[in-house]
């Protein structure tokens, strides 16, 4: 299990910096040994050797600032950019196998992605972030306000985790443990996300202070499954709300009240728990309605 300080990279306090100048420039991160494996086999060997002293580097859109602020100080850093096996998107029947190093931008341009994913991707950072950030990086980082952990739970995805000991599939619900915590073992590398392709359209919405900011709260709905994220410590499936829909319940004040009852919300400097619960419930109502419009419209 890997764990880092909650939302640590948002910290503004730079006073603890130990700015060291090496020949020819400032370096911000603490020293680490840099590894750049050229194949998956090599990467597994390296992570197997160093375990929790090592941090894999995918797109780096969360990890690099954490390194620069020295909130993360791994002794070893493994840059995955040359592991070609991790960059593929393959459709196998009704499952889309998405390599861990596939960028958000690549997914934006992949025709097979479910419509709910296509709706969610523009919410991931800004386009400059989507040019570098990866599906696997977002999942492994496990920010409670991030889109990929929520989409994985919504679509019933599994994470493929591989080590020299073998390979296993971790359902999204088991993969997310809490803020910045996943079920990956120290010697395991996420290689793929298995995305079951849904039948119909879904709904996805989030509230952010400005476009591209982290979601204060968000929600998704697909084929009767309802997920809220950004409210609590990890994306949450709303069982009572799902039951209400299954029993024929329609979007409206009643659905919104049920959702508000079961949303686990925490307050912080960005929004209160009550705000997240009420706004989350409103979004749930909205995405359930969106997913119905899709169904009726097709």
């Amino acid at each position: 299990m890997a764990t880092w300080g909650l939302h640590a990279y948002r910290a503004r306090d730079l006073t603890q910096h130990d700015w060291r100048t090496e020949a020819g420039g400032t370096v911000k991160p603490a020293p680490f040994e840099y590894h750049r494996p050229g194949s998956l086999a090599e990467a597994l060997e390296v992570i197997g050797r160093y375990g929790d002293e090592l941090k894999p580097l995918a797109g780096g859109q969360s990890l690099i600032p954490m390194l620069a602020m020295r909130l993360a100080r791994p002794s070893h850093l493994m840059d995955l950019q040359r592991v070609a096996e991790l960059r593929r998107v393959v459709r196998e029947g009704n499952v889309l196998r998405v390599g861990a190093m596939v960028r958000h931008r690549d997914m934006e341009r992949t025709a097979e992605v479910p419509s709910v994913v296509a709706t969610a991707i523009p919410h991931i950072g800004h386009f400059q972030i989507r040019n570098r950030g990866t599906v696997g990086g977002s999942l492994a980082h496990m920010d409670p306000a991030a889109e990929w952990p929520a989409l994985s739970l919504l679509l019933g995805c599994s994470v493929v985790a591989v080590s020299t000991r073998g390979s296993r599939r971790i359902p999204a619900d088991d993969f997310a443990i809490g803020p910045l915590m996943t079920a990956l073992e120290p010697d395991e590398l996420m290689t793929e996300l298995l995305v079951p392709l849904p039948e119909g359209g879904g709904g996805f919405a989030e509230v952010e202070r400005r476009s591209g900011d982290f979601a204060l709260v968000g929600a998704g709905c697909q084929d009767g499954t309802v997920v809220v994220f950004g409210a609590g410590p990890r994306p949450q499936r709303l069982a009572m709300t799902e039951q209400f829909i299954k029993a024929g319940g329609a979007p409206g004040p009643e659905l919104e009240n049920i959702a508000a009852l079961e949303i686990v919300a925490r307050g912080d400097i960005h929004a209160s728990a009550e705000y997240r619960r009420r706004t989350g419930a409103t979004l749930v109502n909205r995405v359930v309605r969106q997913s119905r419009t899709h169904v009726e419209g097709t």
């Binding site: 840099y34 750049r36 580097l57 780096g60 859109q61 690099i64 600032p65 620069a68 840059d79 950019q81 931008r105 800004h126 386009f127 400059q128 972030i129 040019n131 570098r132």
Partner: peptide, 21 residues
């Protein structure tokens, strides 16, 4: 976004990349 540069034609934040990447 002040540090934005193009890497292989794509706009990225140069503060969020190691030189070796």
């Amino acid at each position: 976004g002040a540090c934005t540069v193009l890497v292989d034609g794509e706009a990225v934040r140069s503060c969020l990349m190691l030189a070796l990447q």
